[in-house]
Nucleic acid binder design. Structure first.
Length: 326
DNA sequence: CCAGGTCAAGGGAGT
DNA sequence: ACTCCCTTGACCTGG
């Protein structure tokens, strides 16, 4: 896909936008065809599909008819082949911000995502979800959730039938338990996307099974709930280092001064944050009997999915990538 | 031509 | 005050 830098957008305006959108729609179509060939039936579309989408009205773009046609074609292709599409707008979308300008920008951008699904011919449904996080706590979760709810009520009905909320990985932010409260504040409309990895970092007293059950209960019965799955990058790199040096990580830490290369790897490892996502995954999550869709949030994306399907050890794949980088 | 630095946006945590 | 992490690779410039 192509994207557009600020300067280019300001200089070229909407003329350059239409050209890039049409290019990106072609790439999306090719991607979905590749996915279908590889039996990948769920896809998160990158928001760069329509660069700067919150900054113009799609209907008023020149070449709108062409854009409309390509969107409709891709939507029909996805529906006919049972490919489930979704969006995950960036972390800059904060509906509970104390700054009205941030809320206004967020609203525009979320509505724009919803309009793209409209152009693709989708009836508003959580089947084609638009997934975000609450985004801020400001030391007052209850107050922030109240603000979030007020701004949520101002969104279009179409968007509200697509918008879903995901649990966070920090204790200062929103657990599944917190989000269930928000779900109720929003009149039971807002489903929760259960993220396994985030939950493990911020369980808030709920077991994985209980939290998944709570999240699943927030989805309409005629829509398959979506979950996110990834693993710890820190642990992944530990395993890679253990493989390379044929020793366990605890022992290796005592030998750092003997091996400059080991020290280099160790220094890189120590910079990795607890909540960073792995390139690959070793396993798929427990579903506890629920019928759910699982989206991999592994950095290597489709390569991670193909690897875990093939039963290839993620350590081996990851090691290859790691050594190439080094 | 290529590698490396840079790039719209909000917020929280760690150093 | 700065970097990483959530999201994502493409854009752009200097050599």
């Amino acid at each position: 896909m192509r994207s557009i830098r600020k300067g280019t957008f300001e200089a070229g305006g909407e003329a350059v936008i239409a050209e890039v959108i049409l290019h990106n729609l072609q790439i999306l179509q090719k991607t979905l065809e590749w996915n279908l060939d590889n039996d990948i039936r769920a896809f998160r579309i990158g928001s760069e599909l329509f660069p700067w989408m919150g900054h113009y009205s799609v209907e008023k773009l020149e070449r709108f008819k062409e854009i409309e046609y390509e969107c409709a074609y891709t939507g029909e292709f996805a529906r006919e082949n049972g490919i489930r599409l979704s969006f995950h707008p960036g972390p800059f979308n904060v509906l509970c911000s104390p700054d009205p300008a941030v809320v206004a920008k967020t609203t525009k951008e979320l509505e724009a995502h919803s309009e793209i699904f409209d152009l693709m011919g989708y009836t508003p449904s959580f089947d084609t979800k638009i997934n975000i996080h609450v985004g801020g706590a400001y030391g007052d979760k209850e107050g922030a959730l109240e603000t979030w709810t007020q701004n949520y009520r101002r969104l279009s009905a179409s968007l509200r039938k697509r918008l879903v909320i995901e649990n966070d990985d920090k204790r200062s932010m929103y657990s599944v338990k917190d989000l269930y409260g928000l779900h109720e504040l929003c009149d039971g409309e807002l489903p929760i996307t259960f993220d396994y990895f985030h939950h493990s970092l911020h369980p808030d007293g709920l077991s994985e099974e209980a939290a998944l059950g709570v999240a699943v209960s927030t989805w309409p019965t005629d829509v398959v709930p979506v979950t996110h799955y990834s693993e710890s990058r820190r642990l992944e790199y530990q395993s890679i280092i253990e493989q390379i040096f044929q020793n366990n990580f605890m022992n290796l830490q005592e030998d750092l001064h003997k091996w400059p290369t080991l020290q280099l790897y160790y220094d890189q490892w120590s910079m990795i944050k607890e909540n960073a996502h792995s390139d690959y995954v070793n396993r798929l999550p427990e579903t506890y009997g629920h019928q759910i869709d699982v989206m991999l949030e592994a950095k290597a994306k489709d390569r991670a999915l193909l690897a875990v399907r093939e039963g290839v050890e993620s350590i081996e794949e990851g090691r290859r990538t790691f050594t190439e980088v080094i």
